[in-house]
Design a protein around this nucleic acid. Structure first.
Length: 183
DNA sequence: CTGTGTGTTGAG
DNA sequence: TCAACACACAGG
């Protein structure tokens, strides 16, 4: 599937996989201008001492909540209670990890173990916190799966802006969330 | 047909 | 709780 959604993506990386013909193993060719983070997530290149590339053993992700897909993509999943919640699939491992930390924060709380947020902490603004608090678990998960979390967050931020003009609070129909008991 | 997502098991 | 594997179902 392709993601024609309006993906922000600061990096305009267009990974085009040729769906035509028989499926082929991605990860090849050096047409990637974006340097991968540290260890290469390569998929069987050189036989590293010991294990050989025999069975289609997929490479494990170095991030938590990120699982490799047979298609070479990455899936994000979080566990709650005993139920596995799928956060969607991603082409970039880091993107999947990002989705996980967001879900973790909304599920477990601000003390959830993440891989990027606590390290980078791009923004300590409560905007993100408020945003997460204004949405139910299922809602956040839906956004992540649809890749609209960043967009929705930005939209919410816009509304949150101070009302420099005129007064009056912007009355918006909040909630109205079917199912899923609020926390 | 491609690919996601779920079911299921094993480990920690 | 988390991750790896295998398979069935769904989407286009």
């Amino acid at each position: 599937m392709d993601q024609s959604c309006v993906d922000e993506s600061t990096t305009s990386d267009s990974i085009s996989i040729a769906p035509t013909s028989a499926s082929n193993l991605p990860v090849i060719k050096s047409s990637e201008s974006l340097c991968r983070v540290g260890s290469g997530s390569s998929v069987v290149f050189d036989y590293e001492g010991g294990v050989e590339a025999e069975s289609r053993k997929l490479p494990s992700s170095r991030f938590k909540g990120v699982v490799p897909q047979p298609n070479g993509r990455w899936g994000a999943q979080i566990y709650e209670k005993h139920q596995r919640v799928w956060l969607g699939t991603f082409n970039e491992e880091d993107e999947a990890a990002r989705a996980y930390d967001i879900a973790a924060q909304r599920f477990r709380g601000r003390d959830a173990v993440t891989n990027f947020k606590p390290l980078s902490e791009t923004e300590t603004d409560d905007t993100t916190t408020a945003f997460l608090n204004s949405h139910s678990k299922a809602e956040i998960v839906d956004m992540l799966r649809k890749h609209t979390y960043n967009d929705e967050l930005e939209q919410s931020r816009r509304n949150y802006s101070f009302n420099g003009n005129g007064r009056g609070l912007v009355k918006m129909a909040s909630s109205a969330q079917p199912g899923q008991t609020g926390v």
